[in-house]
Amino acid sequence: MKKFIRPFFMLAAGAMMISCSDDDNMDRNPVMPSGTAHLYATSHDGSVTRYDINNGETTSYETSSDDAEGIYYDGGDDSFTIVSRSSTSLESYAGIGGLQTGIDLNIDLDLSSSSDLESPRDVAVNGNIYVVADNADVDGDDTTPDGRFFVYTKTSSGFELRNIVTVDFKVWGIEFVGNDLYAVVDTTNMLAVFTNFSSNYMTDMEASASKTVEVEGIVRTHGLDYDGGTMVMTDIGDAGSDADGAFHVITNFDSKFNATMDGGMISVSDQMRVEGGNTNLGNPVNVVYDANYDAVFIAEVANGGGRVLAFSEASTSSGNRSPQINNSLSGASAVYFYTE
């Protein structure tokens, strides 16, 4: 497994602020990424920031959006797609690799969807299928939990709305694992799955999850990400606090999830939790996990006005840890890590 700590010390030359709390790891030989390694982060001001892991460069892209939450980078056409809360649509910006780096750039919109959304929070991608989680109240009764998944197909001319799936819980973070769509159940500690989502939910419908489990120890979950058999989920705790956030790491997730019955609980003994004052976690709203680096990247929206955080050795170290990356980003809302 590639080691993560030393490569990220290269970012000291850029805008990142590096915590050197893991001094016992300083004698390890660094293993630098052999190719592209970019961390993308969106903000509630609509901008996208890219951090280059190889050389420490930081590039900021000013998009057409005034508020973005949710991002995906497509290496096939060198584009990133954001979920715009201001235009209530998907927006895609192409040719990113050909642009100048290390500066602030204004970029032009390449593709978009119609303005179908109301309160979008996250996007999950499976091939040319783009699913957006929207947490607007569907039935006009805020005492009854509900949410929607807007399902788009990406084409050469834009994003076409295929169908809308209305579910019986409040939504936020979503993640494809193969063809299955995992979704956090907002305001709770629960995780739901819709099996074979892309083909089983192809028309406008009301649907219940195939299975829902509790994750012991979480107060209120928001973000999730899966890679290499490990699932990471964030806990924002009290939404009004900027210092009680955490994230949970569940290794061997597939076997643990499958062994838990519908309505059952994944016990705290089957997880690791990172929390405490050293973490700078208050409201970690979005997360990405990379198994090769064993690293967790987090969009933290509350603490310090917004941060991009990263924690190494995510599958082996828990407790009150200091992040290896602690970068100020006002209104940080989502992250995506791309390597090749």
Rank of each mutant, 00 (worst) to 15 (best):
271 Q>V: 02
279 T>D: 08
281 L>D: 08
271 Q>K: 10
276 G>K: 12
290 D>L: 01
268 V>K: 15
302 A>C: 01
315 S>W: 05
327 N>W: 13
288 V>W: 08
312 S>H: 09
274 V>S: 00
304 G>N: 07
312 S>R: 08
295 A>D: 03
304 G>V: 07
320 N>D: 15
310 A>T: 07
317 S>Q: 12
275 E>Q: 02
280 N>M: 05
273 R>Q: 00
290 D>Q: 00
303 N>F: 14
323 P>F: 13
269 S>M: 02
275 E>C: 00
325 I>H: 05
334 A>W: 00
279 T>F: 09
297 F>P: 03
335 V>I: 04
295 A>N: 10
313 E>W: 01
268 V>G: 14
268 V>N: 15
289 Y>A: 05
271 Q>A: 13
302 A>M: 05
297 F>T: 01
323 P>R: 14
277 G>A: 03
312 S>F: 05
300 E>L: 12
331 G>C: 10
305 G>F: 12
308 V>H: 09
335 V>H: 02
333 S>T: 11
294 D>C: 08
272 M>Y: 09
316 T>G: 02
273 R>W: 00
292 N>F: 02
328 S>N: 03
268 V>W: 13
310 A>E: 06
292 N>S: 13
293 Y>L: 14
328 S>M: 01
298 I>N: 11
286 N>D: 02
320 N>R: 14
299 A>W: 01
280 N>Q: 01
319 G>H: 09
289 Y>H: 07
335 V>R: 09
304 G>E: 10
278 N>F: 09
300 E>Q: 12
331 G>E: 03
299 A>F: 03
280 N>P: 09
291 A>D: 10
321 R>D: 09
281 L>N: 09
271 Q>C: 14
312 S>G: 14
272 M>V: 03
267 S>T: 15
312 S>C: 10
308 V>G: 07
293 Y>F: 13
315 S>N: 05
307 R>F: 11
267 S>Y: 15
271 Q>N: 09
334 A>S: 13
332 A>P: 01
273 R>A: 00
335 V>S: 04
320 N>P: 05
308 V>M: 08
282 G>K: 12
278 N>I: 06
290 D>T: 01
268 V>P: 13
288 V>R: 04
334 A>T: 07
297 F>C: 04
312 S>D: 10
329 L>K: 11
288 V>I: 11
306 G>F: 00
327 N>A: 15
310 A>W: 08
313 E>Q: 06
275 E>Y: 04
298 I>C: 06
325 I>G: 01
285 V>Q: 15
295 A>V: 14
328 S>P: 06
307 R>E: 13
307 R>V: 04
318 S>Y: 02
316 T>N: 02
289 Y>D: 08
293 Y>W: 14
301 V>S: 07
335 V>A: 04
